[in-house]
């Protein structure tokens, strides 16, 4: 069984003047297809840095990272951009929707860069919006929508290219408790019914509780990596 993400002895060191800050001090982790993994840890634990490197938004200082069997360190920036557009989906804490752009166009955005023909874009975008239950909001602008609705748009956007992995960075950080649970149930459903691989980054235990596996970071190292026996629903 091929892993989606294979990380070995991953290190990330930021120079700080003469000093240096070790954000990741040698991390080993594998993510298999169909997993729903929560990465936890306090701020400064290295979990966000880890997500950025896995998401190919940043490069590791040392160690190896293979994504679907490809050595990421050897890829050019353009190749990494192409993988982001075709094989990865991102969901951010602050939604990051384009302002003054309709929900539908926001959802279509990754397909524009992946070169999907215009006619197919509309079908796919509407299909994914239907999955997260916001098809009726297609013509709405982000500023006309609630936080929960905006985050659903962002989830639909992360789905359009049928990614191998969805990276969700504190996806409920800006939402109230009820909406947070609603959004997390969407992730759970996507993982359960569509076998979509998800890596969730959060510092809230009750959000991490939705995942099947919980990895805890501390000071740039993995503190624990355990299956989640008491899953929330």
């Amino acid at each position: 069984m091929g892993g989606v993400v294979e990380v070995r002895n991953l290190r990330k060191i930021y120079p700080m003047g003469d000093d240096e800050v070790v954000a990741l001090g040698g991390v080993d982790l594998s993510i298999e297809r169909g997993e729903f993994i929560a990465v936890m840890g306090p701020s400064g634990s290295g979990k966000s840095t880890f997500m950025q490197i896995v998401g190919m938004l940043d490069r590791a200082t040392a160690g190896s990272y293979s994504f679907e069997g490809r050595d990421v360190a050897a890829l050019t920036d353009d190749e990494r951009a192409d993988i982001r557009s075709r094989r990865l989906g991102f969901v951010f804490q602050s939604y990051n929707l384009l302002p003054r752009t309709s929900a539908l166009e926001n959802v279509e955005l990754p397909m524009v860069y992946a070169g999907v023909p215009e006619a197919r874009r509309l079908d796919i975008a509407l299909e994914k919006m239907d999955i997260v239950g916001i098809k009726s909001l297609a013509d709405h602008m982000p500023n006309q929508m609630s936080g929960g609705q905006q985050q659903r748009i962002a989830i639909a956007r992360s789905l359009v290219n049928d990614p191998a992995l969805i990276l969700a960075d504190e996806p409920t950080g800006a939402l109230d408790t009820k909406t947070s649970r609603d959004v997390m149930r969407i992730f759970s459903d996507l993982n359960a019914t569509r076998d979509i691989t998800i890596m969730l980054v959060t510092h809230e235990p009750d959000i991490a509780a939705f995942a099947k596996r919980i990895v805890t970071f501390r000071d740039g190292h993995i503190l624990s990596d355990v299956p989640n026996v008491k899953r929330a629903a």
């Binding site: 951009a81 192409d82 860069y113």
Partner: peptide, 16 residues
């Protein structure tokens, strides 16, 4: 800037 960051995250090349 954030829009640019997002476009890059969803797969825009620097050239785009």
């Amino acid at each position: 800037t954030r829009e640019i960051g997002l476009r890059m995250a969803v797969g825009a090349r620097a050239r785009s």
